[in-house]
Simulated assay, not measured.
Amino acid sequence: MSGPWRVAVNATLHCLTGCAIGEVLGMVIGTSLGWSTWPTVILAVALAFLFGYSLTIRPVLRAGVGFRAAVGVTLAADTVSITVMEIVDNAIMVGIPGAMEAGIADWVFWASLAVAFAVAFVVTVPVNKWLIDRGKGHAVVHRYHHQEVH
């Protein structure tokens, strides 16, 4: 794998990392508090966006971009990717019988999350490739990832 596909896979792994942190945290909190499906999903999605955006904005800010511009770069880079990932993984979680009702100590909960993340990753890679090919999505932020202000 080379070129744009490698960049798309890396962008999707980056997205998956932030989404997984927020998603798992939201699902664990909602499930532990005994919340119903939709409040739990809303919390998980909100935290997925928060953590996903947070992982992107840090290197952009370290590269010396001002906060307002860094927010713009971050939104342009990650919004579509996170949105696709969240739609797919939450649809799978809601669609797997018993997944949302399972407690955090139940293997069904964790297996369902793992399946949801795997499918979301596979669906999101070509979306990110399409965006990158057009100079959008993660291509917008790529130049800032290893740049630091001296």
Rank of each mutant, 00 (worst) to 15 (best):
M1P: 12
S2G: 12
S2I: 15
G3T: 09
P4M: 08
W5N: 15
W5H: 10
R6I: 15
V9M: 15
V9E: 10
T12A: 07
L13V: 11
L13A: 05
L13D: 07
C15W: 15
C15F: 12
C15A: 10
T17K: 03
T17F: 08
G18K: 10
G18Q: 08
G18A: 04
A20F: 08
V24R: 06
G26K: 00
G26P: 02
M27A: 04
V28I: 14
V28G: 00
T31V: 11
T31M: 07
T31C: 03
T31Y: 06
S32F: 11
S32A: 14
L33S: 00
G34Y: 04
S36H: 08
S36I: 01
S36Y: 03
S36R: 04
S36G: 07
T37D: 00
T37F: 05
W38Y: 10
T40C: 06
I42W: 06
A44W: 00
L47R: 00
F49T: 02
Y53P: 00
L55M: 15
L55A: 15
R58Y: 12
P59L: 11
V60I: 08
R62T: 07
G64A: 12
G64S: 06
V65I: 13
V65T: 11
V65G: 07
V65K: 11
V65D: 10
F67Q: 05
F67Y: 05
A70D: 08
G72K: 00
V73T: 04
T74Q: 04
T74A: 04
L75W: 01
A76D: 07
A77N: 00
V80S: 13
V80H: 12
S81A: 13
T83M: 01
V84H: 15
E86G: 05
D89C: 13
D89T: 14
N90E: 09
A91C: 07
M93P: 06
M93G: 08
V94R: 01
G95P: 04
I96F: 10
I96G: 03
G98C: 09
G98P: 06
M100Y: 04
E101T: 00
E101I: 14
A102E: 06
G103M: 08
I104N: 11
A105F: 12
A105H: 06
D106P: 08
D106I: 11
D106Y: 03
W107C: 07
W107F: 15
F109Q: 00
F109V: 03
F109T: 03
W110N: 06
A111M: 11
A111G: 09
S112R: 05
L113P: 01
L113Q: 02
L113R: 02
L113F: 02
A114G: 09
F117N: 11
F117V: 13
A118M: 03
A118V: 13
V122G: 06
V122F: 13
P126V: 14
P126N: 15
K129G: 11
K129H: 10
W130C: 04
L131S: 01
L131C: 03
I132D: 13
R134E: 05
K136E: 02
G137I: 01
A139E: 06
A139V: 08
V141I: 02
H142R: 11
H142D: 12
R143P: 13
R143I: 15
H145W: 13
H145I: 14
H145N: 15
